[in-house]
Design a protein around this nucleic acid. Structure first.
Lengths: 229, 229
DNA sequence: CCAAAAGTGTTTCACTTACACCCATGA
DNA sequence: TCATGGGTGTAAGTGAAACACTTTTGG
């Protein structure tokens, strides 16, 4: 056996910051810890990386196990490795950042988690470990990334109105947008498929529904197009 | 001892992609491996994370040990954790991205490294492990980041000419820039201190020297200013 | 008919781009 | 005096921002 094995090793975990959009609020998925340390506290879903799985696979597996969620978008966020971040000893965690269509998922708690629930990102309970830092980092990433990559659509149902889309951006970016300019710009990109359907069950004029055209986006992307809001 | 210790653990390393600017070429620091696996191959400087140091500290330490370099800018890049990336077994590596003033450093090899040397990023030898992927990722990050954060200055000497600065951007972004527009824009930001000095030992009109004003940048940044080239 | 949100164009202003010549210096 | 890069301004075009009223629908 080579010298790889001569050194003591930190434990390695993954933790996931999963965002969902609930009409007028940006939510984050938290699980209540069923074991020490921080028993009873809310924390990000996550757990130990197995020897035979990649980091991405570990993130997906833990998310599925602890909440039943399979995210539409998942990307690595940052790796947190301060020596004192876990009272059990040295634990380095690779944090992930995920987006889900909230409407399409029912939560189910399992494994080490007592309970899983959605919280407003602006109003979370006190979190275990350094998970508050991780959440802050993820929020920054979301705010930065949503403007130059079309990942926001992963938070909406497959068919959505332009008003829903605009509200999504207003919530994430924390500022108001001009309706006419927003529609002009987003439609000019030619990434939305205009459907022959309107929203249902509203007590006012029903808005037209649109669908994000992934295929067209990939084409334009290859041709040098850059999404930017 | 809690369940933290029930699982086998991947080994954890850090690897550094260190960029330097050599007049007309972007360079990356590589070390020649003195031990198996990949003995004799060139690789990124790096090594195992110790139990009592943070990831950032590990990156700085390994860089210092293997090349004597203390970078002006160092940030975490990405964590690579494919199960098969290291033939010795499961090794997860946290990659770092660093910028140095090439002029200010003399290389000195040490530790496991047979030799350390600068290579053009466009023309590197075949690299060990998945280090070619890491290098590609780092280059993308550099190209993206240099445009909206003033980190490029870390590649130049403390006093530089506007032509040097422009050339830096042209090299990193791989496209030509208009001289007058470049100067207009960068000077309009009011981040450069115009010195009463000119470059020396040139056989033509000597260009004025400037210095990046870190303090002013931090002020403007707080006031909501965004660097963007 | 009232309330609520959908939908729609134009003007102004700022910023980006394109572009060419004279100047200073050392060899 | 020649070669080399340093240094400078303007005009045209493009994209961002500001802004208000009419239409549709259900209650």
């Amino acid at each position: 056996m080579s010298h790889t094995y001569e050194y003591p090793r930190p434990a390695l975990t993954v933790d996931c910051v999963v965002f969902g959009l609930d009409d007028d609020d940006l939510k984050v998925l938290l699980i209540q810890r069923g074991v020490e340390p921080f028993q009873g506290r809310w924390a990000l879903p996550g757990g130990f990386v197995r020897m035979d799985e990649s980091l991405d696979e570990a993130a997906r597996r833990e998310l599925e196990e602890e909440s039943g969620i399979r995210p539409g978008h998942l990307e690595q966020l940052f790796t947190f490795g301060e020596p004192e971040r876990d009272p059990r000893g040295r634990v380095v965690t690779v944090a992930y950042f995920a987006l889900v269509k909230l409407s399409a998922h029912t939560l189910r708690a399992a494994t080490d988690a007592r309970e899983a629930a959605w919280f407003s990102v602006w109003d979370t309970p006190k979190l275990a470990f350094d998970h508050a830092d991780i959440l802050t980092t993820a929020l920054q990433r979301l705010k930065g990334k949503v403007r130059y990559q079309p990942i926001g659509f992963e938070l909406l149902p497959p068919k959505f109105t332009l008003t829903q889309l605009q509200r999504l951006y207003e919530i994430v970016l924390e500022r108001e947008l001009d309706k006419r300019n927003f529609r002009k710009k987003i439609l000019a990109m030619d990434l939305l498929e205009e459907l022959d359907e309107v929203e249902q069950d509203v007590s006012h004029r029903a808005a037209r529904l649109y669908r994000f055209d992934h295929k067209k986006y990939r084409q334009l992307e290859k041709a040098g197009f850059n999404f930017e809001l």
